[in-house]
Amino acid sequence: MQAGIIDFLQSLADGVLFGTTYAIIGIGFTLIFGVMHKLNLSFAAASIGGAYLSLALLAVWRAPSLVLLATSAAGGAALGVLVFLSCFRFIRADNALAPLMATVGMLLLIDEAIAHLTAGVPLRYPALFPDVMLDVGPMMVRSDLLFVFAIGCVATSLLMWLLYRTRVGIATRAVAQRPVAAALCGIGIGRVNATTFALAGALGGVAGALTGTAVGVLSPLLTLPITVKGLIVTVIGGLGSIPGAILAGLLVGGFENIIQHFRGVSERDLHVMLLLFAFLVFRPGGLFAPPAGRD
């Protein structure tokens, strides 16, 4: 009995820590949705793409962990801007379906590009952090997961600082809330949108690298599950809410690991879908439904 509880807590802790990556992906989805009121379905694929770019760097230079993370972030940001230019910038904003479908196309394109360039073989992703087991009372905590969590906290704090303490942040929130009034303040909406894609992409790149290091490999097969998890996190958190995405990411991470512990990996995603279903029925606005209201 005692051992059962410890195993349970162990699964919960591992899951919540790994949930950091879901939280970051969720923040990316929610950030873009918050500013443009449009979904970017290629976001998770671009994030994994960013991580692949850091692997490309590794092929020529044995770079330290922080450089790999930064490269992945930069790659994610570049892909984010590319997605913005190809799927949003020149596509009429009043046609809601066109940019959405364009991002689906981009998701498949990034996926295919990765599959072709790597011959479809999963690539080993290096451990970015020292991988030791820490004794915490009766439990063991994987130090690399602690690092994943810490990096996630740092990245999120940076984002919050940027959004709430800088001129760029004021512009971003202004465009998200009232685009016409933002334009009347002299804020360039196109530029803010591009910046948002770059920012979200950088976060995504970080999440991609963290996923790679936590899982140990990168594979194009990761993109779809992460896309789905990211969307679930976004919906459970409340579309457009960053605190919601954080909480929902950790929640989904912990929840799926507990299910995996009790029911096995084959049933895991099924229960995550059930959790989503429960939210859609009983709390469709998510944990933090942002107030409606936009001109």
Binding site: V180, A181, L184
Partner: peptide, 17 residues
């Protein structure tokens, strides 16, 4: 058309963008 979920000070700062 004030920015509803932004504090008053940031609303004013947005005007000075």
């Amino acid at each position: 058309l004030v920015f509803p979920q932004m504090n008053v000070k940031d609303n004013l700062l947005a005007g000075a963008y």
